[in-house]
Simulated scan of single mutants.
Amino acid sequence: MAVAVVTDSSTGLPTELVAALGIKVVPLHVRVGARELREGVDDMPADLAHRSVTTSAASPGELQAAYEQAAHGADGVVAVHLSRYLSGTFDAARTAAAATAGPVRVVDSASAGMGTGFGALAAARVAHGGGTVEEVTAAAVRVAERARCLLVVDRLEQLRRGGRISTAATIFGTGLVSRPLLQLVDGRLVLKEKARTASKVLAKLSDTATRLAGTGGAAVAVQHLDAPERAAELGRALQERVPLLDEFVVTEFGPTLGVHLGSGALGAVVVPGGAGVVHMG
């Protein structure tokens, strides 16, 4: 019996990878007025920037149901979730794990998007190789610790409104005379550096991602929200510049992250050393 791997819908993991590795994905929620919609299940509004649109974590009950379903016939469950500082999902997951029969290990990826997704992929690959609960958990933790997440947004208004960015970055104002390059550090979104124009900050994003990837092999993901052309351009640059790509993924930010990032957001996730596979996307 294999170990089951669970994650949440904020990862943006491509459906083919989820299906191939049997990862169970728990939907997070988008609230539109009085309506509560499940990411990846229910139809979402076209305008995620509207002030009436917010997000919420999966509930302990939802997570417990997912863990119990995943645990059926398995040796245990390893759940890899987005940063506790960005969502209440991790705390809900710990509550759910304590109420679930059988071993459930909950991993705080200290990340988001494919930063969490690569940790879940690493865990699932070790699980498919016959790894124990401890080995699967360790794989997720190792990859999550190495993952580096970089982000460029067109405007900071939605991040400020949702409290997802440190006060240090609010000095830019909504007009963004300067363009920020943001990064996740210990699970919190902070300012890394700034540039004067959109083209220069995108160049910094590419340069920084290339440097972080190093020369010893890396898993790289490009994520975007309504910016397919910029994502394709960044993807081409990283494929050309990173000496050894073990794995390359281009995917969209889902609605629960999109509510906070805004249209035009572009990100890169780099895992030096890879996430347990040698594959060119």
Rank of each mutant, 00 (worst) to 15 (best):
D91E: 13
H81W: 01
G281N: 08
L182D: 03
G173H: 13
E68K: 13
A147P: 02
E240Y: 09
S263L: 11
K192T: 10
A218P: 10
L261W: 01
V32A: 13
E193P: 08
D75N: 14
T251S: 00
S199C: 11
V133K: 10
G258M: 05
V141G: 00
A46F: 10
G262N: 03
A127C: 02
L151D: 01
E233T: 15
R230H: 15
A79R: 02
L17C: 00
L63C: 06
D91T: 14
D108C: 08
E229Y: 06
T95H: 04
Q64R: 15
R155S: 10
V25I: 13
G217L: 07
A127K: 00
F248D: 05
L191M: 13
L150E: 02
V278A: 14
L176W: 05
E247F: 02
G115V: 02
A49I: 08
R179V: 05
A213Q: 11
G33Y: 03
T15Q: 15
S178T: 11
G216W: 07
P255G: 06
L28N: 07
V220R: 12
K204E: 13
R38F: 07
S52Q: 12
M280D: 14
P45V: 05
R51Q: 11
L238W: 06
S87V: 01
A209P: 09
R161T: 00
V222M: 05
H260I: 01
T116N: 01
A231D: 12
E157C: 02
V78M: 04
R211Q: 15
V77Y: 04
Q223P: 08
A227S: 12
V32N: 14
D108T: 04
R164E: 01
A127H: 01
L82F: 06
A195C: 05
P27A: 13
T100S: 15
V143T: 01
A227V: 11
A34W: 06
T197V: 02
T256R: 03
P27V: 07
V242L: 09
V278T: 13
V177R: 13
D186G: 07
E134M: 00
V41Y: 04
A198D: 11
V41A: 02
F172Y: 14
V153A: 13
V250Q: 15
L225M: 09
A49G: 14
L225I: 05
V77K: 08
G267L: 07
A97C: 09
A79K: 00
G281I: 09
V126F: 03
L151N: 03
V278I: 10
A49M: 11
A231H: 10
E68S: 12
A20L: 04
R148A: 14
V78Q: 04
Q223Y: 06
T251A: 12
T251M: 04
L245K: 07
R31E: 13
G214M: 05
V177C: 10
T170Y: 09
A112K: 07
V277C: 06
L257M: 04
L205V: 04
L184K: 07
R38V: 02
I23H: 08
E193D: 15
L202C: 07
Q158K: 11
L245P: 06
A219N: 08
V41N: 06
L205H: 07
R38L: 15
G264F: 06
G267A: 10
A92R: 03
R211G: 14
V278Y: 12
A213V: 01
E193T: 15
L63V: 11
